[in-house]
Design a binder for these strands. Sequence first.
DNA 1: CATAGCTCCTGACCGC
DNA 2: TGCGGTCAGGAGCTAT
Length: 273
Amino acid sequence: MPELPEVEITRQSFASRIAGARVTGVRTGKPLRWPLGCEAGSLLDQTIGEVQRRGKYLWLPLERGGLLMHLGMSGSLSFDESAALPPAAAHDHFDLVTTRGGLRLTDPRRFGAVVWSPGLDSGAAAKLLAGLGLEPFDAAFTGAYLHAALRRRRVAVKQALLAGDIVVGAGNIYACEALHLAGIDPRTRSDRLSRPRSERLAQAVRDTLARALALGGSTLRDFKDAHGMAGRFQLQAGVYGREGEACARCGGRIRRTVQGQRSTYFCAGCQRR
DNA sequence: CATAGCTCCTGACCGC
DNA sequence: TGCGGTCAGGAGCTAT
């Protein structure tokens, strides 16, 4: 599932290659989560700027506005520098053909999106990005900040991480992994987390995401970057997908529970309330 | 306001 | 081999 590391790796894999290219063609497939929000033809002849990331969104600037893209749960972007993209397959739902190659969104489950917006800070993009929490690598994302934010809620700490309005980027896999790294039971009420444990959690979120980035992300079913490379993080996951196994750190039993209709994996031995 | 639940979609997997 | 049921989950939306 594309979380921050996968989205960032995707960005890095094509941003510099597409920058400066001019749009020469657009093809849309089946509907994605939201309509494109403009006539596809209006994108033609515009030059692409530097692709940016905010949370799990990518922003592809054009001369007039830009495209806000999200990979949903099963989406991936590929960038093909050859003259033409291969024929679109069943799950290829958006192509941007440019003078430097073709960018293609493939998304079997179609929870992803490509939305035109007049700017990153206006229109559709502003609306979608409003309420996003801090970037995990922002200097402002400190233990003190996290502690203060968690104190305002009573949900389980894992739910608070997943909500994305305190800190962005950690989805189900990395939220589980960060809590394991920090030694915190995911069911702990967020307003009961002490300041020192909040410090540890903030650090664990950063470390987990940084490590995943270094390992090329996680490839559970089908994530690949725009070069078609698979990630390796999942091979080193401490708890995710390891129900019944022994914890590599303490030897305790890894358990699975459900929070907010999602699987939570945690070690019953070294993750404390 | 905070929180819980619903919803979109389809491939993978499981038991029979 | 086929088939129905279940699960996976990002995150906006709605209801409470």
